[in-house]
């Protein structure tokens, strides 16, 4: 029983980070929507804890992120139009990414998960996950740093590298 209490606490402790991840997934579209997602994700993770699925604090945390990623997929999919103009450029670029790529980038760059853990959270294989991450970063470089050079879109520096799909 005390182990469950510990796991609940671990999920609680992840709340600020979950809120950050949710807000970023929704591209800053507003704290209310993001917080609703976090609440639903926490409830699902708590249900898993009660069903004795996660074995330790890290697994409990992953449950919460997994639930949040799945829930946000429906909610945040079509958000590009609603990112307010007062958001920084990177948020707009984020909003233009397909959902899976956005989530992959955020799990690694913002939340600091390893590729292995992030792939499990995103419910996919490590190879597929890394491919999404690479596409996300490529798209972000095009959108952010070189908006006025469309010809660069077809080419990436380092042509001698083999791009692993």
């Amino acid at each position: 029983m005390s182990q469950k209490g510990d796991l609940f606490q671990k999920i609680e402790a992840a709340t600020p980070a979950l809120r950050r991840y949710a807000r970023a997934l929704c591209c800053g579209a507003g704290s209310a929507a993001a917080d609703e997602l976090v609440q639903a994700a926490i409830e699902q993770a708590a249900a898993k804890v009660r069903a004795r699925e996660p074995s330790d604090g890290a697994a409990a945390r992953h449950c919460a992120y997994r639930a949040l990623t799945a829930l946000a997929r429906e909610k945040c999919a079509g958000l590009a139009a609603t990112a307010s103009p007062r958001q920084p450029a990177v948020v707009h670029a984020l909003a233009d990414l397909p959902y899976e790529e956005r989530a992959s980038l955020l799990l690694v760059a913002l939340e600091g998960f390893s590729y292995e853990a992030a792939a499990r959270i995103a419910d996919t294989s490590r190879e597929a996950f890394v491919a999404r991450l690479m596409r996300a970063r490529a798209a972000l470089s095009l959108l952010d740093l070189r908006p006025s050079a469309p010809s660069d879109g077809a080419r990436r520096a380092g042509g001698h590298l083999r791009v692993v799909k």
Partner: peptide, 26 residues
């Protein structure tokens, strides 16, 4: 850039609706 844009959210005190959300459901 991503971290700068969203780090402030992680430093906010979570809203009352999320406090003890896990235990409340237990």
């Amino acid at each position: 850039a991503l971290r700068a844009a969203f780090e402030p959210v992680a430093r906010e005190t979570p809203p009352l609706s999320l406090r003890n959300a896990a235990v409340r459901n237990a």
